[in-house]
C-alpha cells in the first residue's frame, strides 16, 4: 500500500531529513513510526501526503507513483489519505458536524449522504451527541476524536496520524489508539507517528524506528524493549 524505495529528502536549508530509506507497508497493516523529534517522521508523512516531494527515490501509495502526480492532481490523491494531526487542525468557526463534513463536501457528496456519513463517523468516535457543539468547547481528547472522524469520514484506504496522542494522558491515549486499531481491523492501512514508546510496546504492532533520517529498526518490539 505504501512503498518507499531509496527515498531521500534534503530541504533547501541543506538539512537532510531522510537519507535514502526503503520500506513497504502492505494494505491493511497498522505500523507505528517512532523516533526522536527531528528523526524524519513528519517528513516521511508529508511525502505520503504530497506536502513535500522527495529529493531522490520513489514513493508509491496504492500502487501509484507519487512522482507522476501533477500538482493539479494532488487534491485527488489527498482524498485517498486520511490524516490526523497532533494539533487537530479543527476549524473553530463552525460546528463539529461541519468540521467532519468538510472532506465529503470537497469530494462532492450529496448533502443527505454527507449527513449519513458524518453521523456514522461521529458515532464511531463516540461524539454523536456533540455534533452541534463548537469544537473549541470540547476537551483535548474529544477534539482529537473529531479530527479522527474527519480523517476517516470519506473512508480513505490509508490513514496517517502524526503524534495523535501527543497532548493526551495515558488513558485517553489508549482510547485513541484503540480507535485506530478498530479502523485497521476493517481493512484501513494505518500509519501512526508517535514517540510514546510505552504505549507502542504494549500494543503488538509493527514498528519502524527512524534515527537521523535512517530506519534503524523495522519489526515488532519485544515487550519492554526501548528502541528510539
Amino acid at each position: 500500500m505504501i512503498n518507499f524505495s531509496t527515498v531521500s529528502k534534503r530541504y533547501e536549508s541543506g538539512q537532510e531529513a531522510l537519507g535514502g530509506i526503503s520500506f513497504d507497508i502492505d494494505a491493511g497493516e497498522l505500523v507505528f513510526l517512532t523516533g526522536h523529534s527531528g528523526a524524519g517522521k513528519s517528513t516521511l508523512m508529508k511525502l505520503i501526503m504530497l506536502m513535500e516531494r522527495p529529493t531522490t527515490g520513489q514513493v508509491l501509495v496504492g500502487g501509484r507513483n507519487l512522482s507522476r502526480i501533477r500538482k493539479s492532481q494532488i487534491p485527488y490523491h489527498r482524498r485517498q489519505v486520511g490524516v490526523v494531526f497532533q494539533n487537530h487542525q479543527l476549524l473553530f468557526d463552525r460546528s463539529v458536524f461541519e468540521n467532519v463534513a468538510l472532506p465529503l463536501q470537497i469530494a462532492g457528496y450529496q448533502s443527505r449522504e454527507v449527513g449519513r456519513r458524518v453521523r456514522a463517523a461521529l458515532d464511531k468516535v463516540g461524539l454523536l451527541e456533540k455534533e452541534k457543539h463548537n469544537p473549541i468547547t470540547l476537551s483535548g481528547g474529544e477534539q482529537q476524536r473529531v479530527g479522527i472522524a474527519r480523517a476517516v469520514v470519506n473512508k480513505p484506504p490509508v490513514l496517517l496520524a502524526d503524534e495523535p496522542t501527543g497532548n493526551l494522558d495515558p488513558e485517553l491515549s489508549a482510547e485513541i489508539m484503540n480507535l485506530f486499531a478498530q479502523f485497521n481491523a476493517v481493512g484501513v492501512t494505518v500509519m501512526i507517528a508517535s514517540h510514546d514508546i510505552d504505549l507502542i510496546t504494549r500494543l503488538d504492532y509493527r514498528v519502524l524506528t527512524l534515527h537521523k533520517g535512517q530506519i534503524i529498526h523495522d519489526g515488532f518490539l519485544p515487550k519492554g524493549d526501548q528502541h528510539g
Binding site: 494494505a27 473512508k155 484506504p157 481493512g187
Partner: peptide
C-alpha cells in the same frame, strides 16, 4: 515484511466499502 503479511491473516477481511478507490 513476511511477518506483517502473516499478521494480516488474523484480521477480518476488509469490508468492500473500505477498499482503495471506493470513495471515487
Amino acid at each position: 515484511m513476511a511477518k506483517s503479511g502473516a499478521r494480516r491473516v488474523e484480521r477480518p477481511a476488509p469490508e468492500k466499502n473500505n477498499g482503495p478507490g471506493a470513495v471515487q
